[in-house]
């Protein structure tokens, strides 16, 4: 698992690469929650290279959503591979986060 960050206007894009499980999730937690604490309130998680995620990673997205709600911010997930999207839908997590098709759609959603 590795992360790439890019600032596009007011939006901080997190590209999450590879497999996120209990062994690999710590950098994601540190970087994402650190960014929110540092004042980033519009987060776009680009999942195009995310191959696997367990509750260890989902938990981090939920904590981020909770922190951002308190700051009047927002988190949006984009560009999920079909098998990841299916798992989000089966587990009911698509109700927790806006999930959009592309980075462009995500940036639009975060500007609204």
């Amino acid at each position: 698992m590795h992360i790439e960050q890019e600032k596009l206007g007011e939006v901080l894009v997190f590209g999450v690469f590879g497999r996120v499980d209990a062994a690999t999730c710590k950098p994601l937690e540190v970087d994402m929650l650190g960014a929110i604490d540092g004042g980033e309130h519009r987060l776009l998680i680009d999942c195009s290279k995310l191959d696997y995620i367990s509750s260890a990673g989902l938990r981090i997205f939920l904590i981020a959503a909770k922190k951002l709600k308190a700051e009047n911010g927002q988190i949006v997930l984009c560009s999920m591979q079909p098998h990841i999207r299916t798992m989000f839908e089966i587990a009911g997590f698509s109700a927790a986060f806006p999930i959009v098709e592309s980075q462009d759609d995500g940036i639009k959603a975060l500007k609204e």
Partner: peptide, 11 residues
């Protein structure tokens, strides 16, 4: 659970 943004018991 999601509305309350709880984070435990997901597994």
């Amino acid at each position: 659970y999601l509305a309350e943004l709880r984070v435990g018991g997901l597994g």
